[in-house]
Amino acid sequence: MLRRTFVSTGGVAAGTAFAGPLGSGGGLAVLSGPYGPPGSPDANGVALPDGFSSRVVARTGHRVGGVLWHPAPGDGACFPDGDGWIYVSNSEIPLLGGATAIRFRQDGSVYGAYRILSGTDLNRAGTATPWRTWLSCEETARGQVFECDPYGVRAAMPRLAMGRFRHAGAVCDPVRRVVYLTEDEPDGCLYRFVPSCWGDLTTGRLEVLCATGDEGPVTWRRVPNPAALLEATRHQVETAHRFDGAGTCHHSAGVFLFSGGNDGRIWAYDAEREWIETVGTGNAGNTMELALVGPDHTAAPFLRVEGHPGSEITGPALSPDGRRLYFSSQRGRRGDAAGTGGLTYEVTGPFSRLPR
């Protein structure tokens, strides 16, 4: 499956980032970016616009900050930490997945790392919450959502009310106080979790999106049994809308974007209008590119990773000050399914040139 990854640029700029080959279909137009096109690849195989540089901060199987960096790095996010910050990364491997955090000083140097989740299965999807926790989700048939402490103080806890299914993407909408969740199945669904109390995911209501077509108004209906003890969540509501392998996602200004996964489409759900539509498509193949996607659904290529034909870009996230971008090549140059060649990068440069 071709994965597309979105990342918020926070206060630095309006927009997202998109990992994967770009197409001109639908409403996702490919334009020239504010930085210009990626140039020739550097010593790390990363092609960047003029003024930007990359470094490798972690390699699978090598120590970083005192711990071994995990295989198959997946979704990630940054959290403020005094004058520095923390980068959290999932591990998308069976049985030993989990998540790891790296601590950075203000100058970008690493001064510690630690596991925040262990012993879980295929941790692909993840998102930061407004209350500064990390949601790490399993991509298995009865996968769970675990709420983790990126600061390493509190133990990770499963959030059972959020449903057990093959999680592919998760993102919070702090305005409507819901968490959106996608499902990686050929007939997967789009869900939203409505907590009983915002900031506490222990209890709440899991709902599934229902629609009569690929474009038009939608409704939400409650999933009777989120634990899916006798029947999968996607089969519990007859009118639930189906997506062919719904994938990673992003929320901005009331619009929830997510990839269609297997069919290559990019979907947009407008929460204000209660409306869903396709806004773009991707080209065939597995191009290792990261592009900026603006709020008007225009895309601008930003970086490209060369020499990693069997890998994909995962976990892009900006540091809290907006000056450093982190992302991973999940399987690296080796391209093996176990992700033993995974690499995590940092990109620095004049990000302030992004339009506000």
Score class of each variant (00 low, 15 high):
Gly15Cys: 02
Val46Arg: 11
Ala43Cys: 07
Leu28Thr: 00
Ser24Leu: 02
Ser32Met: 08
Gly36Leu: 11
Ser32Arg: 14
Leu22Glu: 14
Pro38Val: 13
Ala29Ile: 02
Asn44Asp: 15
Leu31Ile: 12
Pro34Asn: 14
Asn44Ala: 10
Thr16Cys: 05
Pro41Lys: 10
Gly27Phe: 02
Gly23Glu: 01
Pro38Asp: 15
Pro37Val: 07
Gly23Arg: 01
Ala29Gln: 06
Gly26Trp: 00
Gly36Thr: 09
Gly39Thr: 09
Gly26Met: 01
Pro21Cys: 07
Leu22Pro: 05
Asp42Gly: 08
Asn44Ser: 13
Pro21His: 10
Leu28Met: 09
Thr16Ile: 03
Gly27Met: 04
Gly25Phe: 00
Val30Pro: 04
Gly23Met: 02
Ala29Gly: 03
Gly39Trp: 08
Val30Trp: 03
Val30Ser: 05
Ala29Trp: 01
Leu28Tyr: 00
Ala19Met: 06
Ala14Gly: 07
Val46Cys: 09
Val46Gly: 11
Gly26Lys: 00
Gly36Ile: 09
Gly45Tyr: 08
Ala17Pro: 01
Pro38Ser: 13
Gly26Arg: 00
Thr16Arg: 07
Leu22Phe: 04
Pro34Val: 08
Ala47Arg: 07
Gly23Lys: 00
Val46His: 12
Tyr35Ile: 09
Ala19Phe: 03
Gly15Asp: 05
Gly45Leu: 09
Val46Met: 08
Asp42Asn: 11
Pro34Leu: 09
Gly39Gln: 12
Pro21Ala: 13
Ala14Lys: 03
Gly20Asp: 10
Ala43Gly: 15
Pro34Ser: 12
Ala17Asp: 08
Val46Trp: 12
Gly25Ser: 05
Ala29Phe: 01
Gly23Ile: 01
Gly39Ala: 12
Val30Gln: 03
Gly36Glu: 15
Gly20Arg: 04
Leu31Gln: 14
Pro34Thr: 14
Pro41Leu: 08
Ala29Val: 02
Pro41Arg: 10
Leu31Asn: 15
Val30Gly: 05
Gly39Cys: 11
